[in-house]
Design a binder for these strands. Structure first.
Length: 276
DNA sequence: AGTGCGACCCGAACGC
DNA sequence: TGCGTTCGGGTCGCAC
């Protein structure tokens, strides 16, 4: 599933291909995924030119002449760019472009969402306005996290997934960050000390940057899905693992906030797991 | 305001 | 073997 590093690669490949192209028409085959008015979505994009494409957290933001198209791939969303259109069952949105190519959005789970808003509404009418800072942001420091965490009694694992505080970590990377930081995933966020906060920030940066570097090297063909062939899974230390790569103990799995959480009792000093 | 949980989906994995 | 059930993933919306 696309995490931030894959979305970054998708953004870069889309940018390389789409900038300067205009939209001739749009097919929406599954209207529930368009969270703004569907008729406006189809109508307003006609004639719009792709000016820029940005990424914020796991969200893609297409800037066109007059609008922002905001897109989240969730777990299985993929973009394809090709000169044919196969009417695949799961291709829910298809943009017909001025060079007669198609930008096709495919999503078997139908979990992805899109918004189309005028430029002044990006922060008020889409989820973009609620996102916290990315780990890469220089302003994200210990003091920022301290302020945000001071009322959070929830487990740090859960809070790392809260995109309104720090945006970018998904379930897999949250486990990796906590393992690398040697932090107990059950520990209440408000109880983290300066050293732990510092490690969270530092390791979030390192892990995401490493994954971006890996995801960026594998793109060859534009006829297959864009940017989902990264190899970060080969570098995972704890998520989905059976044995701790540091101490050799068995990795445990618990549900924290409804999410599968992998951790090493020994290295992360877990005295009691709340939900087995 | 913080927290908890169901809803959204459906292929894969699992249980019988 | 075949069928039914459960699960997972990110985010939103609602209830408390």
């Amino acid at each position: 599933m696309p995490e931030l590093p894959e979305v970054e690669t998708v953004k870069n490949v889309l940018k390389k291909n789409l900038l300067g192209l205009k939209v001739k028409s749009v097919d929406v085959n599954y209207s529930d995924m368009i969270k703004t008015n569907v008729d406006d979505f189809k109508k307003n994009l006609i004639g719009e030119e792709f000016i820029d494409i940005k990424r914020l957290g796991k969200w893609l933001i297409f800037e066109t002449t007059n609008y922002y198209l905001v897109s989240h791939l969730r777990m299985e969303g993929k973009y394809y760019y090709s000169d044919t259109y196969n009417h695949d069952l799961h291709e829910h949105v298809v943009f017909y472009l001025s060079n007669n190519y198609y930008l096709r959005y495919k999503d078997v789970r139908k979990f992805g969402v899109m918004f189309l808003v005028t430029k002044d509404k990006l922060y008020t009418d889409t989820p973009i306005g609620k996102l916290g800072m990315e780990p890469f942001n220089k302003d994200l420091d210990i003091n920022y996290l301290k302020e945000k965490y001071k009322t959070k009694r929830l487990p740090i694992k859960t809070v790392l997934l809260d995109q309104e505080i720090m945006t970018g970590l998904g379930n897999i990377y949250a486990d990796e960050v906590l393992f690398k930081s040697r932090i107990n995933p059950f520990k209440k966020a408000m109880l983290l000390n300066d050293s732990e906060l510092s490690n969270v920030i530092e390791n979030s940066r390192i892990i995401l940057q490493d994954a971006i570097a890996l995801g960026g090297t594998t793109i060859r063909s534009y006829t297959s899905s864009l940017g989902v062939t990264g190899s970060y899974q080969d570098k995972l230390l704890v998520h989905t693992k059976k044995v701790c790569p540091i101490c050799g103990d068995a990795i445990k799995v618990s549900k924290i906030g409804g999410r599968s959480t992998y951790y090493c009792v020994n290295c992360q000093d877990v005295k009691e797991a709340i939900n087995e």
